[in-house]
């Protein structure tokens, strides 16, 4: 059974007709071709690499149907940078070597995007906030360092400038 839906993804409206049971993760990847969102477990909801920001909240896109997102706004990894300029968190991940294979990276970026709206740079708080995403390569040390750097930078930014990095 199909249904027509409209979803705003990274600021662009998409009108698509999709099968009711299509997962949001597959909608992003297969229907829209936004393959930056990854799938590491799929309907187990544990690995977190499929995380996107949905109406301002980080959610696991493998645990949601595309039709449920009808009328909503979604931010995926493709929408984080502003043109050529990387989001402070993306830049910090680069500076601190916060990624190796990069398969989990979108999950961390989008999870910590929500966290950084109110930037906290305490490493223990950061670690706890990252528990929903698994990484097998980095041991998390450099990811924590990257989030610390981004948090410090964002905390120092003037609030309007900071808000521009958080469109959703």
């Amino acid at each position: 059974m199909n249904r027509a839906i409209t979803v705003r993804v990274n600021g662009t409206l998409h009108h698509e007709t999709v099968d009711h049971r299509l997962l949001l993760s597959d909608f992003l990847r297969e229907t829209l071709g936004l393959t930056g969102t990854h799938v590491g477990c799929g309907y187990e909801g544990r690995c977190g690499v499929c995380t996107v920001v949905y109406e301002g909240v980080a959610i696991k896109s493998c645990l949601m149907l595309a039709v449920q997102a009808d009328g909503a706004a979604v931010l995926s990894v493709e929408g984080l940078a502003r043109g050529e300029e990387l989001h402070p968190l993306q830049r910090a991940m680069h500076d601190c070597h916060g990624l190796q294979c990069g398969f989990c990276t979108p999950g961390f970026l989008l999870t910590m995007y929500e966290f950084l709206k109110t930037p906290v740079s305490d490493p223990n708080t950061i670690r706890a906030a990252m528990n929903g995403v698994l990484c097998r390569c980095t041991g998390y040390v450099h990811i924590v360092a990257a989030v610390e750097q981004a948090a410090r930078e964002l905390a120092q930014m003037d609030p309007d400038e900071r808000a521009r990095w958080f469109p959703l």
Partner: peptide, 8 residues
């Protein structure tokens, strides 16, 4: 390698 992986 990072940039492509950070931007999807």
């Amino acid at each position: 390698e990072d940039r492509r992986l950070l931007t999807g």
